[in-house]
Nucleic acid binder design. Structure first.
Length: 598
RNA sequence: GGUCCCGUAGCUCAAUUGGAUAGAGCAACUGCCUUCUAAGCAGUAGGUUUCUGGUUCGAACCCAGACGGGAUCACCA
């Protein structure tokens, strides 16, 4: 249990005790406690409307009676004030100094671990190998990676997994277009990154396909029919059949082109700063799940229709009838996902399985979980779909086929250019070599991008306007990085007054800013717990900004290293050091590098 | 059409899960660098939380309806 939870409980327990003494008629066992709003004096606030109602008392009167009783019985309370039914409590400076001292000497933990450690798999990224990654994938990768780190920080054992969609009609489209128009070009001969080269042919396919449809329609064919009968589409489907039957030529081309893509992805992943413990390839898993179909039939959970197709009736769960096997005996998408879920469980004995997948698949995951429950899989309850909103352009959805996407590599290039221009204009990087500078530009660019995508609640869709490039000022990653760099700079200049190791804080008084900062640093562990419960790295991101902002304001108004009172100065240095460590921990979860100079 | 999600300042997002006077950033305007990094700080302006009802001490949040946007409902993945 964290110190703050302990303290909050101490406050509510004392309040309950006080109420039992003062108002025996009060039956309420719950007193909501929250952070005191900025406009009011205090650290924590007890909300007494509920208890007052059950005690048939005016909230104001109850707060006015309870305040003095608590202040008398709980020494950590410095003072209190009452507004309506709100009892605002300010804790003593001694209390806060004790927290700071505890964090500094290690007797208090910065974070508290989960009470229920589990083995959790987080699947994210899961790209198709027919095109390069775009901004939507970037959001997915950051979310999955940050969530994995968050769960680790909370004490869970985490396995990061990537299920690569390396087969299917879309891959064949790229392959076919390359055969037709590629003249044998390779990443080597073209100088193009492999994933971009393959993506180029995916776009080329779509263009040729549309032309063919238009021709057929001009000849009088209905558009729907033309879509099916366009020769290039028929050819792609033929290629897929050949792939499935293992035709060597198709398999060889498929293998080569996938390798090009993987080489490209590897670079992009490295730049994004994401990685995986386990790789799954759909070409290995797409046949899985058939035994589950058999099992379902035996258990009477599935039924076979007259044509031989197998269905699962989920209408009782508010869903539809879902096909799980085609009449020809082949698997559909859901079947292989059932098989993969089973495989994950068998291989790793996981307690929980998180899928970071866009909200367009909400229905799919409802079905998946419902079927697993019907099959009696205990791990079905541990499956969680971390659903996130699509990123849209001002013009609408991004479409790879039509080339209207914000390419991940291009975006990172652009952001690095802006980061470099910014940094040069400010000229604060004396002493850094060329290699260090390029690292710095990359860190700033990725910090801006990471924060930009992670600060938004996952389930919300977001609009990205390429015209207005991602900011480096205000509520941004670089703002957080900047404040960290300022602390580092201050500490560099004070190396001989180091705040490492044992210090004894004297009995000094705290400014409002300082109490606020102490509270924030001490609340950090609770923020992580909330973020885990909500599956939301956004809570961590917003916390980082709040903390950096509070520091920035404090820094502007207060002498820290220059303070002459030695007790105050030491306290401030310790406080600032703790802010730095907290930012480092939190940004570590977000995957944001914190340079020491910028 | 059925189901699900969303609607907060001009724009991008918050709001401790039903609490106090709905907050930040961007854009605009006013101050502040001879002092620990101005990628900053302080301030001004900007709101009928899409609308209408309801629930209660109290609603951006819960309920009902309307309007607007999106997703999904394939023997595609």
């Amino acid at each position: 249990m964290s110190r703050q939870i302990q303290t909050k409980r101490q406050l509510t327990d004392t309040a309950l005790l006080g109420m039992a003494r003062l108002f025996p008629q009060c039956q309420d066992l719950e007193i909501p406690i929250q952070r005191t709003r900025k406009e009011y004096e205090g650290d924590y606030t007890l909300v007494l409307f509920g208890p007052a109602k059950s005690a048939r008392l005016a909230p104001l009167a109850m707060a006015q009676a309870l305040g003095p009783w608590m202040a008398e019985h709980l020494p950590i309370i410095h003072s209190f004030n009452v507004v309506q039914g709100f009892l605002n409590i300010r804790l003593s400076d001694t209390y806060w100094l004790g927290c700071l001292q505890g964090l500094q000497d290690g007797s208090l933990d910065r974070v508290h671990l989960t009470a229920k450690p589990a083995k959790v798999m987080v699947e994210y990224s899961s790209p198709n190998t027919n095109k390069p990654l775009h901004l939507g994938h970037v959001r997915n990768n950051f979310l999955g990676h940050a969530l994995a780190r968050l769960l680790q920080a909370r004490g869970h054992e985490v396995i990061k997994a990537n299920l690569v969609n390396d087969r299917g009609i879309h891959i064949c489209k790229s392959m076919l277009a390359w055969q037709r128009y590629g003249n044998g070009e390779t990443p080597l001969t073209s100088g193009m990154k492999g994933d971009h080269l393959v993506g180029k042919y995916y776009v080329a396919f779509d263009k040729a396909y549309k032309t063919e449809i238009a021709e057929l329609v001009a000849q009088g064919m209905a558009p729907e029919q033309a879509k099916k009968e366009a020769p290039i589409m028929q050819e792609a489907q033929e290629m897929l059949r050949n792939w499935e039957s293992g035709q060597p030529g198709v398999r060889a081309l498929w293998y080569d082109m996938n390798q090009w893509v993987y080489a490209g992805f590897e670079q992009t992943y490295a730049r994004l700063g994401v990685d995986f413990d386990v790789m799954y390839y759909e070409s290995d898993t797409y046949l899985l799940g058939k035994d589950l179909v058999e099992e379902g039939l035996e258990k009477g959970v599935f039924e076979r229709d007259d044509h031989g197709a197998v269905w699962c009736d989920l209408t009782a769960d508010g869903l539809d009838r879902k096909i799980v096997q085609r009449a020809d005996g082949t698997s559909v998408y859901i079947t292989q996902d059932l098989g993969t879920a089973e495989l994950k469980y068998r291989q790793h004995g996981i307690d929980r399985s998180v899928y970071v997948v866009g909200d367009e698949q909400d229905y799919h995951f409802k079905v998946l979980i419902a079927i697993m429950k019907k099959l009696g899989r205990p791990y079905a309850h541990g499956i969680f779909h971390l659903s996130y909103g699509m990123i849209e352009l001002p013009t609408g959805r991004m479409k790879s086929r039509e080339g209207t996407v914000v390419d991940a590599d291009d975006l990172m290039d652009e952001m690095e250019r802006v980061a470099e221009a910014h940094t040069r204009a400010l000229g604060k990087t004396e002493g850094l070599g060329t290699a260090e500078l390029s690292t710095l530009y990359a860190q700033l660019a990725m910090g801006a991008l990471r924060y930009y995508l992670l600060k938004v609640e996952p389930k919300k869709k977001m609009v990205f306007n390429p015209e207005e490039s991602i900011d480096f000022q205000g509520n941004t990653g670089p703002f957080i990085q900047y404040n960290h760099a300022r602390i580092c700079s201050m500490q560099r200049k004070l190396a001989h007054h180091g705040t490492q190791g044992q210090v004894r804080l004297g009995n000094t008084t705290l400014l409002d800013h300082e109490r606020e900062l102490c509270r924030m640093v001490c609340d950090y562990g609770d923020v992580l717990a909330e973020a885990e419960a909500a599956y939301s790295p956004a809570l961590v991101a917003n916390y980082c900004y709040e903390l950096a902002k509070a520091f920035s304001s404090y820094y502007a108004e207060t002498h820290i290293a220059k303070e002459e009172d030695p007790d105050k100065r030491l306290m401030r240095l310790v406080l600032v050091h703790q802010i730095k460590l907290t930012l480092q921990h939190a940004c570590g979860i977000l995957g944001m590098a914190l340079p020491e100079q910028m």
